[in-house]
Amino acid sequence: MWKNIYLWLDERLGLNDMYNNLLDRPEPKGSWWNTLGSASLFLFVLQGLTGIFLTVYYTPSPDHAYDSVQYIMEGVAFGWLIRGIHHWGATLMVIVVFIHLLRVFFTASFKFPRELTWLIGIGLFIATLGMGFTGYLLPWNQKAYWATTVGTQIAGSVPFIGELILKSLRGGPDLSALTLQRFFSAHIWIIPAILAALIGVHLYLIIKHGESHFPTKED
């Protein structure tokens, strides 16, 4: 019976084609350095899942943000674990994505035909930093508040348009409820949407061109 179900699904979904094209692909001999990309993807998914759990209790307003995070840590069953994973996952994701970038640089994997994969990858790197930057403010504690104050100040030092950048990041001249609201929106909607789309293209390009091999004297 299972065979029949499989055949029925295969006719409609093309499971065999998927297996042949996506999974049963030949690859150059890889090493553990090749796992960094999938590790970044895993961290992205994990951050997404834990992040969704956190939004159930988190309130993005200066009056309640701090207390709602406190409640997640103390009141919610296993809230400390979910937040702990999300907190450390953010740090680890920045590290893993950065090492992945360095690996690609040192093995010159960005060269023909993978130039576009590199460009998308840089976008993913910047978006990851953006996730870190926006997420850092959300607990609305001293560290978060002042880190964002400095961060937006640095962004505001651009000549001519600095003032505009500063005000649009903060939603006004100072950090306020608006800042928290737009950082929250960027953190849970805008940047994740960009990340997901870029990851899709990145993965397509990897399957299209295959994983690059480690260079030897012939290359």
């Binding site: 999974l23 030949p26 150059p28 001999k29 890889g30 090749n34 796992t35 999938s38 295959g210």
Partner: peptide
Amino acid sequence: LNKGERFWPDSIFKDVVVSLGI
């Protein structure tokens, strides 16, 4: 590619080990 490995299960195995470790 000819002297390489298969994505499934060779590469996936390493990916899963690293992700689990993380």
